[in-house]
Design a protein around this nucleic acid. Sequence first.
DNA 1: TGAACATATGAATATCTGTTCATATGTTAG
DNA 2: CTAACATATGAACAGATATTCATATGTTCA
Lengths: 103, 103
Amino acid sequence: MAKKTVDKSIITEEDLYDLADLFKAFSDTTRIKLLYALMEGELCVAELVEKTGATQSAVSHQLRGLKQMDLIRCRKEGKQVIYFLADDHVHTILQMGMDHVKE
Amino acid sequence: MAKKTVDKSIITEEDLYDLADLFKAFSDTTRIKLLYALMEGELCVAELVEKTGATQSAVSHQLRGLKQMDLIRCRKEGKQVIYFLADDHVHTILQMGMDHVKE
DNA sequence: TGAACATATGAATATCTGTTCATATGTTAG
DNA sequence: CTAACATATGAACAGATATTCATATGTTCA
């Protein structure tokens, strides 16, 4: 009865918008790099800047977007802000996407 | 040994671009509607126009994009062109995304 | 062949999105 | 308190993207 699959009949117009937004979060290279980096563990902004090769500003802007979507969270630690993935879902979605890309 | 997961060490810069492109395909409401409609079975363009509420032209343009990404395929049947999902991956990705959206 | 229908295409436009630059905020150490 | 550092933010700009409008292509049927 309590199956994990979604009942198609109750998918609203708004759900489709949310769904598009979710995938939009994964649709940019900088964001993908950020998420991929965070898959290996939490990192501060400076480290993310290094790993992505993007500007500190660009990274910060993108982190904000990802945080708003609750794909990542953060905590302060002194001067630094440490970011980490919000949950396993991100991991799963990325993995699945990568499986598809890799055929 | 032959696990389904992807070895992180062999993920290239190009893979990340492909991955972003894949998710980009799912990041627009019109395209999501198209794909969702096709999850229930193949449909001709006119039916897709009806289901999505978008213009015939808009639908046609988006179908082209989805086809180029090989997310959908089509066959001709008289005057009509019948579209259908290319494989189960699309189904799975959409399902997983929806599961996330629905919490 | 020509009319009616189904779909595709190209150019133009308006909107959205990501980056950059400059600067603000907040934190620690001296 | 101030200098040095870490991160965030806002405005401006450039490039990408989705839609529309007009029209082209292709198919069937009379």
